[in-house]
Design a protein around this nucleic acid. Structure first.
Lengths: 232, 232
DNA sequence: CGCTCTATTGATAAACCTCAAATACAGTGG
DNA sequence: CCACTGTATTTGAGGTTTATCAATAGAGCG
């Protein structure tokens, strides 16, 4: 038996739905449709009509926004128990973002009417959802400020630290970011180019702060990186 | 009689509260506390505990975020009928933003318990609020992308167009942005410096696209500006 | 081993910021 | 009405940061 994906017949219940009773949740799970995505497959594309919302069962999605010139800005990575597209569904608009699997990922999708019915039947959910959205708003605003006011290297440091918090796992030699993380991805997440990221990582590697390889970053000295990110 | 501020004893009701009946709204208005701010006064400061949420009755607030180095990033300007700090109150955290009156402004403030009671009693409000927050999220994300992918002049153009949409008023010679708008403010809103803004406006003035003065911008050729902003 | 995708590194150029100094503007009080 | 004062704005010169381009090296995979 495959040991990586968790048992497939129970669905991780995110906090947003904690207002539901167990049986209500079970019923909701029933209604949802599971879908497995191979790495690099897109779940939905910026501009698609928003007709479903998703919950990540296992795996990871990259949420990004693309400019007309083709430049990609990575908004965030989400993992098990997190939602995608709920907000677009609610507004009844096109998705303003693109979601792509960065590794094999299973999601459960629900259609719009189900979502809206749920929202009206259980007011607590809307309030919880509000909390989630606010948190995201806060993060984007913070990153917006950083993009305005900080230099590239500082931003790269912050990016790695954020990714570390969301997807880091302890290793003997430091904290590994458990994402296939190319220089280009880090650049898209930091608002710079892969060249600058490469140079910066090389320099940090010489200082012993990180240890990086092909699509892989291990943070060996988080403390130093934090100090640097905060401009000290 | 002062003719600028609208009659003070009726409060503009924002869409968020459309789920309330007239008398419920009237009662809520009763509970709120009015407050008038002179220009440049801050209503709340980043880091303050979030104990009240506000509705702008008339006037305008500038919502911004400050870096430790003192750099300011303007998140948005809000006017009559718009809310501030509702989200921070909900999360029960410190405000992550600063709100400053850019002109004489009246707000009504409610305390946290009132807000929470309201939210639980009228589920529709949470859903409406969700819509508002999502809209803001969407805008910040978009601006984040633009900051990553576009040049300064393009961003300045987009900033002016956004401000025009939110605070523009038709004049004989074009559309005036009705805000005391210094070069520094435009810079803080576009993620650049006042020098670059000044140079850019000068150049556009020569082209006949805008006509600017001390803390004042009139867009004389919106069409040209849009074309430029979209990179055509 | 050869193919493809990713990463490194140097050289160069462009965009933009910083600093300094001069000028324009609005309000204030004589 | 005018001079005065404090801001806001303009503009130039120069420097820094960072992007761009090009060429090479390395890693993983069949």
């Amino acid at each position: 038996m495959d040991q990586n994906p968790p048992p497939a017949n129970s669905l991780l219940r995110p906090d947003v739905f904690k207002s539901l009773t167990g049986s209500q949740w079970a019923e909701m799970v029933q209604r949802g449709q599971r879908e497995t995505l191979q790495a690099k497959r897109t779940l939905f594309f910026q501009g698609d009509p928003a007709e479903r919302f998703y919950l990540v069962n296992w795996g990871r999605l990259k949420l990004s926004r693309l400019s007309e010139a083709g430049k990609e800005a990575i908004i965030r990575y989400i993992g098990a128990g997190e939602m995608a597209a709920a907000v677009a569904v609610l507004k009844g608009r096109d998705y303003p973002v693109t979601a792509e699997a960065v590794e094999e990922t299973e999601v459960t999708g629900w259609d719009k009417p189900t979502f809206l019915r749920l929202l009206h039947a259980h007011p607590g959910i809307a309030i919880n959802l509000l909390g989630v959205v606010i948190e995201r708003l806060d993060e984007v605003q913070q990153r917006y400020l950083e993009l305005c006011s900080e230099g590239v290297e500082q931003r790269i440091a912050r990016s790695l630290l954020r990714l570390m918090q969301r997807a880091g796992s302890r290793r003997a030699d430091g904290i590994l970011i458990e994402l296939p993380l190319s220089r280009q991805s880090i650049a898209d997440y930091s608002g710079t180019t892969l060249y600058t990221v490469s140079r910066t990582l090389s320099s940090w590697e010489r200082k012993g702060w990180v240890q990086s390889g092909r699509e892989k970053v291990v943070i060996t000295d988080p403390h130093a990186l934090v100090k640097f990110a905060e401009g000290r």
